[in-house]
Every structure is written in C-alpha cells, then in structure tokens.
Design a protein around this nucleic acid. Structure first.
Lengths: 245, 245
DNA sequence: CGCCTATTTGATCTGATTCAAACAATGTGG
DNA sequence: CCACATTGTTTGAATCAGATCAAATAGGCG
C-alpha cells in the first residue's frame, strides 16, 4: 500500500458503501490528488463567506459544520467522520453559507474542484454517488430539524447517540456499544440547540437511568433499545445501503 | 402558447434562474411529459415511506415538506412554490424520509424518474442545475436549523417573512411589500418549531410595532429593514443568481 | 504546583407551553 | 337568509422546560 492508497482509501470506502465501483472507477478515484493538511482541535477549515476552489476530504479525525447568529450563538449542523467530504456542495454553490471546523487533531485532504469535475465527467456513476451523498446530507439535516423543532433535550441527546453509533459502526469505529466521543458538553449543546448547563443535567439523568455511561471522551450505550425508544430513532433517514445479513 | 408550454413553463423559468438554457436544452425540457393532478388544501402528495417513481413539479399553489414525531408533533421542513420540484431527491434516495403536502388548492405534475434521468444523460448541464437545486434546498435547511436551534420566536417569524418575500419576489408574486400568505398560524407554528398560541402572541407584537400588517391570508411587510434586522436576514443562503441591476 | 479548560451544582428567571374557553370568519344545507 | 357546524384566531391563567448567572469542583498537563 503506497502513499496514494492510504490517501484515498477513506473515499474509496465511502463510495463503495454507496455502490460497487468498477476497477476502472476505482483507479480513477485512487488517481485523485490533493494537498493534505493537519488541523488542530477547534480549528476552522473553511469559513462562511469563503469561495473555495477545492473540497475537503476528511482522512482522519472529526469535524463539524456550523453557523453563527449575529449575537454569536452557534448551531452545529452536522458531524463529519473520515471519508466524508463535508463541503461537497461548494462544487455548485460558489460561496460558503456556513463554516467547517475540526473537533480534534485531524488530517484533511483538499481536492481541487477541477479534479472532481473531471472525475465526474468521465465517470457519471461517481457523479451520481456524490450527488446522492449530498442528498443524504440533506436528509440528516431534515431529521435534525425535527429534533430541534419538536423534541425535548432528553430525546435529542438519545437520538444523537443513536445516530453517532450507527455511523461509527459502519466505519468499524465502535467497540461493542462503546465508542470515543471527542465532544465537549458545549459542543453537544451547540449541536442540539440547548444550553451546556442543561446538557450537563440531562446527561446526568441519562446516566442515572442506566441508559449511558460517559466518561473521559468515551460513551457506552448501555441500553440501546431504551435510547432508541426515547430518541425515536429509526435509521431510515441515513439511507444506508442495506447489506443482507 | 400550447398546452405543453403552459405545462412546463414553471420549470423552464426555474432552470433559467440558474443558468441560461441553450435552445436545445430548452426544447428538451419542454418535451418533458407527465401526469397533472389537482390537490386540495392539506392533501398529501407523497408520504414518508413511499418509494416514488416520479418527481413532483408544482405548477400552481403552495406546498410544504414535513416530518412527524412519534407523538404526532409536526415539523414543516420547507415551503414550496410553483417551479419547485420538492422531491427531486427521490431520484437517488429510494424511500421517502418525509412527506409532501399541498397547503392550498394546487396543480402538480408528476414526471417519471426515467424521463428525468434521460434528460440529464443527454444534457449534463441540466443535471448540474438539478443537483445545484437540491444543494440550495439543503442550504435553506441549514439556515432554518440555525433559527430552530438558536433564535427566538420573534426572530424566526421575521426571518421567515423575509425569506418568503424574497422568494415570492423572484417569482413576481409580490405587490410592493405585500403578498398572499396562505398559511394558518398552526402551519407557521409547525414551520418555526413553536406553539400556535405563541405564534399568535408574537404576531400581535409584530403588528403592534408596525413591522407587519396581516389579515385574511395577506401580509404586508411595513418595515423591511426592521424585519431584516430582527430576523438577522441575509439572503446569501438562498444562493440566488445575482442579476446585475 | 499552578494554569487552563471542562464539568458540575445552586438559585433564579423567563420564553414558551399547556389547558381551556371565548370569539370570529367562512361555509353548508334546509 | 338564517341556524349551525367547522375551522381559525384570540385571550387568560397556570405551569414548566430550559436559560441565565455565578461560583465551585474536577481533570489534564507543562
């Protein structure tokens, strides 16, 4: 496995989760090239108002997209994991309407729009997969909107834990029902549209009821069915490709 | 202007607002065919769980997409106007993760996925325009998420009025600063993630401050700058193509 | 140890919900 | 043309989930 394979494998895996790449397509994706940069926790990658000429592929780490109100209140819009291209939309929307930051020390690759456009032109199915990916993105936004508008703090937290579990599981990043959660309570608050203080209290409730175990950046879902029921979690909105058992 | 022109003109206009169609592309779009159906107020067009084989083009009327929690709380995700294809995402996401309903008596055309796919195959720029359209959709979701998570009732209302004004204006559906608003207070509530009662009270405040005039399905924005300031409205997220004055 | 950041706790306040009922507007059928 | 049903708006009072403010505690780390 040379440097290039390492470089592109998260993207190949991501696309493979959408449809089976032909050898031809696979080598075209592997031929993609870009600059790799390292980011520290909390560091911005792209910010609102930018006009990027490249897309970001997360190779390692966690990121989030967010917007901020006039008085500085932040709303996290989504979390992103290795293999994600969080600003794929910049391919067709010139100016960023939101920002992207990394949450932990991360490596991200910048792939020029021109390279992606070329890839899509010669491999339309890959273009469709990218389109589909942005559509799933929107589907997750919709589910979060339902939560932000119509669910209480307790439900939002349970729902988020379920979502993260399912996504991390698909990447092989869980251990039984436990996984690393590199989010501060303030970040959880910004994602769920509530206050850090209230997150803290709600978290204590969930712990007290034996639904989760949470300490030092690691969660364990101790009662999957309970969490699922409280959060009304149904993974349909993630539009995962079902692999027959 | 024959029946077919009438049929497709909202879509042509929509696409023209994204980029200038070539004569060839224009005739291809005009050649699209579909069944037209009439819907009454509140009637569902597609519902969560469906696996549509066609997309809906709104010819006349207003629609909205929504999701519902387990206990029946509804969150409206977006409003849709003539020329919109609210479920374009069904082209790539098999099963609907939300529903689409019309808010007033409306005419909608169903265009088979196969026809759209053919169109895109032969006219890639139209495919890009469709993709772009779904990306703008997502951009609006993001802005709404910021509102749902981080703005109060007053700001949400002002923001929504501004957004609707701008969108309706682009369709020539406003008269000065007034426009028809076929939404009940309950529907406004479902869109903004608050209670009908509280919508009512907030509306009265806005009226009392001379920001809006609202009666019998018609709003007048009496203080555009005030509404814009309160709602922190900036139309960048709508990604309108700027036409030089 | 001392610094910095994150979590926790307490007390108080408030924007928004809930419940309930009155009121207005529109439409229907007799 | 009116009685009546239906749907939407408005009002009032009580309550609550979550916000706010402030300070204490706990961890991680050079």
């Amino acid at each position: 496995m040379d440097a290039r394979d390492t470089f592109q494998s998260p993207l190949v895996r991501k696309l493979e989760s959408i449809f089976a790449l032909s050898p031809d397509e696979r080598s075209a994706v592997s031929a993609l090239n870009g600059t790799v940069r390292q980011f520290g926790p909390g560091e911005d990658v792209v910010v609102e108002g930018d006009r990027p000429s490249a897309c970001c592929l997360i190779l390692e780490g966690w990121g989030c997209r967010y917007k901020v109100t006039g008085v500085g209140k932040r709303q996290i819009l989504s979390f992103h994991l290795p293999g994600d291209v969080p600003d794929l939309q910049s391919l067709h929307l010139r100016v960023m309407d939101h920002s992207l930051a990394m949450l932990v020390a991360s490596r991200v690759a910048f792939i020029a729009h021109s390279a992606i456009r070329d890839l899509i032109r010669h491999h339309p199915r890959i273009g469709d997969a990218f389109w589909r990916d942005t559509l799933i993105d929107a589907a997750v936004f919709r589910e979060w909107m339902l939560g932000l508008g119509r669910r209480d703090a307790r439900q939002r937290l349970c729902h988020l834990f379920c979502e993260l579990f399912v996504r991390l599981d698909a990447l092989g990043m869980v251990d039984e029902y436990a996984f690393g959660l590199p989010l501060t309570q303030a970040e959880l608050a910004d994602a769920l549209g509530i206050t850090p203080v209230h997150i803290n209290r709600t978290l204590q409730d969930l712990r007290g009821e034996g639904l989760i175990e949470l300490r030092r950046g690691r969660v364990e879902l101790r009662d999957w069915d309970g969490l699922k029921a409280i959060g009304e979690f149904d993974d349909a909105y993630l539009h995962l490709r079902k692999v027959p058992a």
